[in-house]
Write a protein that binds this DNA or RNA. Sequence first.
DNA 1: CTTGACTCTTGATTCAGGTCAAGGGTTTAC
DNA 2: GTAAACCCTTGACCTGAATCAAGAGTCAAG
Lengths: 136, 136
Amino acid sequence: MRIGTVARECGVSIDTIRYYEREGLLPPPRRRPSGYREYGEGAVKQLRFIRHAKELGFTLEDIRELLSLSSDREQGVQGVKQRAETRLAMVEERMAQLRRVRNGLKQLIANCPGHGPLEECPILRALSGPDVEKHA
Amino acid sequence: MRIGTVARECGVSIDTIRYYEREGLLPPPRRRPSGYREYGEGAVKQLRFIRHAKELGFTLEDIRELLSLSSDREQGVQGVKQRAETRLAMVEERMAQLRRVRNGLKQLIANCPGHGPLEECPILRALSGPDVEKHA
DNA sequence: CTTGACTCTTGATTCAGGTCAAGGGTTTAC
DNA sequence: GTAAACCCTTGACCTGAATCAAGAGTCAAG
């Protein structure tokens, strides 16, 4: 398979594939005499791995780690599970943050009449005020 | 007040203040004969406004808009409320995304024994597999 | 008067994760 | 046999929000 086929198959761009290779996320493939990259099924699998992991919020750095763990017969499974747990914790923290932000916005919106003098706009007033105290 | 004082007062760096000025988020302040920037209370307020808005997930671009609305006697209050609503919708969408990601991770983790042969690690298998179907 | 802390400007650099362009060689279909 | 579509490399550029560096001027304390 040439690079374009792999790209279409995996839903990424050709440039992205070459970028991942440079970054060590994909092993350098065999080359044809012309210099063209020649990929097998393994590359497609690995690329899909990367894509899925990215969808789950792993960074490319994380993914490099997952990939090296996935061939580590000693620590592999444990390591992978741990990474997933760490990532889960990060996702949950981010969600909690967003919940706070959402609540803040909701309050502002609820209190705003949507008309009247600017001085009384609770959104502007809240934003201009001194430090907002944090609330869970 | 000189720039360093304002920076400390508002919890941002000096560079950030100058950056905001360049970006049109803070009006250029008066200057001393030496060229030093001289700020009043208004600047502190506005800087706090920016910081709070950033905490609520507004981009600097959004904030530029909010600031111009906040002195628009005609459309101000409505405009501000609308922006807040738009931002709220974006926050909620992002939360929904994260919920999906979280559920995916949770499932993977729940199914992983944490030991045993790599081939059976459900996390690695899931990541390598074909496209994951989306689930709410 | 000097030392250290502060400030000025301009311009470069950082981070992640790519994307794009230029200038060339290769393969495939007709 | 040629045109379209593909691929190669190198290196520059993009976004957003700053941050840093260099080199020079200013201010306050002792």
